[in-house]
């Protein structure tokens, strides 16, 4: 029995060195769930810091505003805690996708929004007009307060044939005669 104990102990000891997990895999999983808008609406400086806080139990899993209830639900599942809707009890679905739009006639070329954009998707140079790379914009709204002339608007992305999807089948309930 002692011998068996020694052998198993050695196996366990070897396994703990051989299969050592580098870093915290939970942080990676949480981060993979987040929408990576880098908007800071959760109160952290980006998705990674928020993921670290959530994994460490310092932040609630329902603070991601762009992700909405879908992300809150997946995070709650991941952490094994009870799901709480984003923004209190009434909950909110994921925000409709928006992208920034620069009114090019008003833009003064101050580069303030370029510095504010966390994903470098505003192009332009000093004293020259700026514009948004629409398909890279995450809709984080960080450029809106940065603009000194208020020329940035968040426009909802309209449904078109390219982004259209089949709806959940809804069966109409008819009144019985």
């Amino acid at each position: 029995m002692v011998f068996l104990g020694i052998v198993l102990g050695a196996v366990l000891g070897y396994a703990s060195i051989r299969f050592k997990v580098e870093g915290n895999p939970l942080v990676e999983k949480v981060e993979a769930t987040l929408p990576q808008t880098q908007c800071g609406q959760c109160g952290y400086a980006g998705c990674r810091p928020y993921a670290e806080a959530v994994a460490a139990g310092k932040a609630e899993p329902n603070q991601c505003v762009p992700g909405g209830d879908n992300v809150a639900k997946s995070l709650a599942e991941l952490l094994g805690v009870e799901f709480k809707p984003v923004g209190g009890d009434q909950g909110s679905g994921p925000k409709p996708k928006q992208i920034a739009f620069i009114d090019e006639s008003t833009c003064v070329g101050c580069t303030a929004c370029i510095k504010a954009c966390p994903v470098d998707c505003i192009i332009g140079a000093s004293k020259l007009m700026h514009t948004v790379i629409a398909n890279q914009c995450t809709g984080c709204e960080l450029c809106v307060p940065a603009c000194p002339v208020d020329c940035i608007a968040m426009l909802p992305v309209k449904e078109n044939i390219a982004n259209w999807k089949w709806h959940y089948p809804v069966i109409e309930i008819k009144k019985a005669a």
């Binding site: 990576q36 880098q38 966390p118």
Partner: peptide, 29 residues
Amino acid sequence: YYRFAKSEIAMRDMEKKLAEQAKERFELK
């Protein structure tokens, strides 16, 4: 139901890809 699920999955996959790109761009910045 299958069409709904297929297009929903396809859309989520695309969002995931975009999120990865955004993350990459954020890290580069």
